[in-house]
């Protein structure tokens, strides 16, 4: 039975890699944005004396995860519902969890690769030093919680997608909007109106970006965060709560077919 789940993962990855449009326009898009932002604003330094390109690199990993987990999961599921993949699988003895593990393997692999590409750009293009060894442990749990929360939310939101052609457009609205208000594109967040800062703090993206900045930025950058603190406890809590919300929404909204009445 494990073999079936691994076989699903293999098939998912094979299909993703063969879809050149997805590889170029989805997978490499965050790296392209990072190159643009980093080049345009790279020479500026924040109040704490950290190069803007380094801050973008760290924050943009949150975008990377949104892209590979939330968008890929959400649009992939909408498409699988529409093109008959789910209907076909449901008529076979393959268990539903094998399908979901296959998707999870795809999303995990893509997210790791996406993070590696973004960190690679940061190190090679923008001279970002790699963080001390202890920070990688923090990176691992923030990354894992982010991927889980975003994937589950992607599954949940896919239920709202009536037509797979619109999936990218629908899923990218929260992605782009949240990045503007969550300190990814505009940092520090204190530039935002107070109420917007509070609203943004309800969503996971702010906490993902803040956590990744902790991992990759020097300690003096902490002063730039809201409340002057990395607040890792809150990062863990908000992401954990979103994992639970995502799971509940998934169980509540999951449908095998787009036509099921």
């Amino acid at each position: 039975m494990i073999a079936v789940a691994l076989s699903r993962g293999h098939i998912e990855i094979l299909q993703f890699l063969r879809d050149r449009t997805a590889v170029v326009f989805t997978f490499f898009f965050p790296a392209l944005l990072l190159l643009l932002f980093g080049t345009i604003f790279g020479s500026e330094s924040s109040a704490a004396g950290v190069a803007a390109s380094r801050i973008f690199t760290a924050s943009m990993i949150a975008y990377g995860v949104l892209n590979t987990a939330f968008v890929t999961m959400g649009s992939g599921l909408a498409l699988d519902r529409e093109d008959g993949t789910l209907k076909r699988l449901r008529g076979t003895p393959m268990p539903a969890w094998a399908y979901l593990i296959g998707k999870a393997l795809l999303v995990t692999l893509l997210s790791v690769a996406e993070a590696a590409v973004l960190i690679g750009v940061g190190v090679l293009v923008f001279d970002m030093p790699l963080p001390p060894a202890g920070h990688w442990v923090t990176f691992a749990w923030i990354f894992l919680l982010s991927v889980i929360a975003c994937s589950l939310l992607g599954v949940a939101v896919s239920a709202l997608v009536k037509n797979a052609r619109n999936a990218g457009a629908i899923l990218n609205v929260p992605v782009v909007a949240l990045q503007f208000v969550s300190g990814v594109f505009i940092h520090p967040m204190s530039q935002l109106p107070d109420w917007l800062e509070k609203v943004a703090s309800l969503f996971p993206v702010r906490w993902m970006a803040q956590g990744f900045r902790y991992v990759f930025l020097p300690p003096e950058a902490e002063a730039q965060e809201i409340g002057g603190s990395w607040d890792l406890g809150m990062v863990a809590m908000v992401l954990g709560v979103w994992c639970v919300i995502g799971l509940v929404l998934c169980l509540w909204t999951f449908r095998w077919s787009s036509r099921e009445k």
Partner: peptide
């Protein structure tokens, strides 16, 4: 039970890249 039945779908266009 599903191992004993086979279903030929009417309008699937999945697995296009395989």
């Amino acid at each position: 039970w599903r191992t004993r039945i086979g279903i030929v779908l009417q309008d699937a266009d999945d697995a296009a890249d395989l």
